[in-house]
Write a protein that binds this DNA or RNA. Structure first.
Length: 298
DNA sequence: GTCCAGGTTCACG
DNA sequence: CGTGAACATGGA
């Protein structure tokens, strides 16, 4: 069912099962979604998008010609059978607690360039600050996106070709500090075709990770974020400070285990769909008061 | 004013 | 190879 409103907005209802839109869009995977009540507004590619969960559906609105809407199903991963995925995860009580609490949280499938650039900017930044700096970058260097009447102007994420023309001072002027040269080099490498995301999808996890980690400012954690949130490597398990805390606390009895050992453990222990486990644990750590995070276990 | 943030790099021992 | 400090900036 597709129809057009007088304002030029195209709408479509997507039937979904087990889809927690708020948790998905607000769990630190993507940084450009803003809530107004239960409605979320953002940009996917060059399209303004508004999403509203309504029972068994997600109402999607776009101001640009949406075509068959496949781009949105791909982004939201609405076709993924969540039960099939989650049943592959270990039965550890702590993990199961997080799965129950945030049932319906999904991994998105984002644009690799936007994902890489955003996470280069994420290092030692709070999520609110990451959103701010990404927004500043889009407003300054992204092209305006077609928006419905009365809606605020919004910009697409600037492509690598655009950022590659800038200088380090240009980027530092946006307040990204020591991350500026990292972002610039990434943009240049992608713009020049020396980093090809389509190629990364064809190789093994280890090979793709090595290519990403060859970028300055991209270590294991940021590489795993891109592998998981954009390239479809569901085994990738980014370990940041929050997930590190969760793992040390629940799987290592709070012993000061080295980060490298925790990382090694995580990827083998959580298996082929470990990335989903990681995202549930991360969101759980960030949303639950410390005392009730893991039920009676801590 | 202090502490810390979805880390990475580099210089040590 | 494991550890610790430096790196910019600003929110809480």
């Amino acid at each position: 069912m597709v129809f057009t409103e007088p304002t030029g907005i195209r709408q479509r209802n997507f039937k979904v099962r087990d889809y927690h839109l708020a948790a998905t869009l607000d769990s630190g995977q993507a940084f450009r979604w803003n809530p107004q009540g239960t409605t979320w507004t953002g940009v996917i590619g060059h399209r303004w998008v508004r999403l509203t969960p309504t029972g068994a559906f997600i109402l999607a609105e776009s101001s640009s010609e949406p075509g068959d809407w496949h781009w949105l199903e791909e982004y939201l991963q609405t076709r993924v059978d969540l039960d099939f995925v989650l049943q592959q995860l270990p039965s550890d009580p702590v993990l199961q607690q997080a799965l129950r609490t945030h049932r319906g949280l999904r991994l998105l499938r984002q644009d690799p360039w936007e994902c890489l650039a955003s996470f280069i900017l994420s290092s030692t930044k709070q999520i609110t600050q990451i959103k701010q700096i990404v927004e500043r970058l889009c407003r300054r260097y992204g092209v305006p996106v077609r928006t419905p009447a009365r809606e605020a102007v919004i910009h697409a994420f600037p492509g690598p070709d655009r950022l590659a023309t800038l200088s380090e001072p240009d980027l530092r002027a946006l307040g990204m500090g020591f991350r500026a040269p990292y972002l610039l080099e990434a943009a240049r490498r992608v713009a020049a075709g020396r980093l090809d995301f389509d190629q990364l999808r064809q190789v093994s996890l280890d090979e793709a990770r090595a290519v990403l980690m060859d970028l300055p400012g991209v270590g294991r954690k940021i590489a795993d974020c891109v592998l998981l949130f954009a390239l479809g490597f569901n085994q990738a398990f980014p370990v940041d400070v929050w997930v590190l805390r969760a793992l040390r606390s629940a799987w290592f009895q709070n012993r000061p285990v080295p980060l490298s050992q925790v990382v090694r453990f995580a990827e083998s222990h959580f298996g082929a769909q470990g990335g989903y486990a990681q995202q549930y644990l991360f969101h759980h750590m960030r949303t639950q008061p410390a005392v009730q995070r893991f039920g009676s276990l801590t």
